[in-house]
């Protein structure tokens, strides 16, 4: 079976995000970019399926500027077999990405699509779900465990209040939670091998997808900075302040 994995280029999680002074977005100039950590987990899971003999081919797809090739190469170094870049300079919102992925799903006919549960830039957590709806496939989101069966997959999901186990018929969409696996580090021999793996490049127009943004960003602001605290002299003073100033006890 074929597994398709989605990979997004995002600002590295170690970077201190700065908002642009005109409040139109975050500053991406000279900022370290990486593969979305949840997508890395998706790639690891797909590669493990191939190593176990369950999957024959792992295809990684990214949507965005040509710089996304870097993240595709990272995925190839981690063990994916080939890459697809859908190249566009458009600001790609979840619905547009889901539509592009739907077109790729139609083209490649994978038995399983694995994506991160969210990307750490926008934290939208929408693409996987939208793709499931558009493609008319079952979805198992926030997966912390995946067991492949015959024509179906048993998935443990991290939900509020515990773990939920469901089965989905294949083909299906899986989105990964943090505890699904621990991704490996790519070795240099594998990084070098990845250079030779093919990457196909399409544009959204090639795929007949309209990626015009539907949501307009009005303003981006940094979180309010925390105000300095005060040190109270006594328990009585603390209780008094909690009761009369913060009004959290009565």
């Amino acid at each position: 079976m074929k597994v398709l994995v989605a990979a997004k280029r995002v600002v590295d999680y170690n970077v201190n995000i700065r908002v642009l002074s005109d409040n139109t977005g975050v500053d991406l100039n000279n900022v370290k970019m990486s593969l979305n950590p949840f997508d890395e987990i998706a790639i690891e899971e797909a590669v493990r399926l191939r190593e176990a003999g369950t999957a024959e081919e792992v295809i990684v797809v990214s949507v965005g500027t040509s710089a996304c090739q870097e993240q595709i190469r990272t995925a190839l170094a981690l063990g994916a077999d080939r890459g697809i870049l859908v190249e566009t300079d458009e600001d790609m919102q979840p619905l547009a990405i889901a539509k592009v992925l739907k077109a790729i799903v139609d083209k490649e006919q994978p038995s399983l699509v694995i994506a991160g549960k969210q990307a750490i830039d926008g934290d939208n957590s929408q693409t996987g779900q939208m793709l499931a709806a558009l493609a008319g496939l079952g979805q198992a989101t926030f997966a912390s465990q995946l067991v492949m069966g015959d024509g179906e997959a048993t998935v443990t999901r991290e939900v509020d209040g515990g773990a939920e186990t469901i089965t989905v018929k294949l083909p299906a969409i899986l989105t990964t939670d943090l505890r699904l696996n621990e991704p490996r580090y790519a070795s240099l021999p594998n990084i070098m091998k990845a250079k030779k793996k093919p990457i196909d490049v399409y544009t959204p127009e090639d795929l007949g997808v309209d990626v015009t943004p539907r949501v307009k960003t009005l303003k981006v602001e940094p979180p309010a900075s925390r105000k300095a605290g005060i040190i109270v002299e006594s328990v009585e003073e603390l209780v008094d302040k909690l009761r009369n100033e913060a009004k959290v006890i009565s």
Binding site: T74, L188, I191, M192, K195
Partner: peptide, 8 residues
């Protein structure tokens, strides 16, 4: 390739 290796 070198950059990717050093990053890793």
């Amino acid at each position: 390739t070198l950059k990717q290796f050093l990053d890793t």
